[in-house]
Design a protein around this nucleic acid. Structure first.
Lengths: 138, 138
DNA sequence: CTTGACTCCGTACCTAAGTACAGGGTTTAC
DNA sequence: GTAAACCCTGTACTTAGGTACGGAGTCAAG
């Protein structure tokens, strides 16, 4: 697959592919005789994952570490488990905040026939400040 | 409460408060005789919400619309309900992706005593491309 | 009554994550 | 065999979301 095909299938710009390659997020693909990049189908999946994870609030650095983890790095099982456990904690914190937001909005829907100031939507309190103590989210 | 207190309580820079004010995300607070900003406790909650929502992948523009919704805008109940319903759909899509990511990582933990290449972690497929058809996420 | 710690404003700068451009080679379709 | 439509590289620009800087006013403590 050539650059433009991967790009259009994954819904990104061609330059973005090069950018990800430079960042080490997308592996350097094989090249044709003329030096053209020849991607496999995996590349599309990877890029889609990256874009999706970004929408969930992950930085490229975090996404990079998720990709490495999914690819079998680190080799050491205990280390891999520890990393995965840490990621899961972060993810569950996000899920908890989102669930609380959803519940607030449902409450708004239920009470929105009242005067606007009397509507109930405790959205501001939906997000507990769970920073997870700088345990770094790399 | 003066700027520095709000900033430190909410864990942001003072300049960030001014920036949010300019963006219309934080309401212009009352001023002291000398022109100093005098914030109420609500400001801290608002800023914390903004930072939390950003970690969940919302842009300031989206966050602005969530804040308005929570504050009783639009007045019209049907319009407010429609907006809230739309937000909920977006939020649930995020929750679904995050849940799938978490499950993938759990699977990794369960299978990580195998050789790294034999570990199972379908992380790349965890995020369905649910863009919600440009239904705008304002 | 001055020193240090705060505030104001406007403007300029920074980082992350792209995106575009210039100047060049390749491939395919007529 | 040449134009359209690709691709390459390196470098420069852009956007969102801040952050810092300069010059000036304020206020409490010694």
């Amino acid at each position: 697959m050539r650059s433009s095909e991967v790009a259009s299938r994954a819904g990104v710009n061609i330059q973005t592919l090069r950018y990800y390659e430079r960042r080490g997020i997308l592996p350097r693909p094989k090249r044709s005789e003329a030096g053209y990049r020849a991607y496999d189908a995996q590349a599309v999946r990877t890029v889609r994952f990256v874009k999706g994870a970004q929408r969930l609030g992950f930085s490229l650095e975090e996404i990079d570490s998720l990709l490495k983890l999914a690819a079998g790095e680190p080799h050491n099982c205990d280390a891999a488990r520890a990393m995965a456990t840490d990621k899961i904690a972060h993810i569950e914190a996000k899920i908890a905040s989102l669930s609380a937001m959803r519940d607030s909005l449902r409450q708004l829907i239920a009470t929105c026939d009242r005067s606007p100031s009397r509507r109930e939507c405790p959205l501001l309190d939906a997000i507990e400040d769970e920073s997870i103590i700088e345990g770094e989210g790399r």
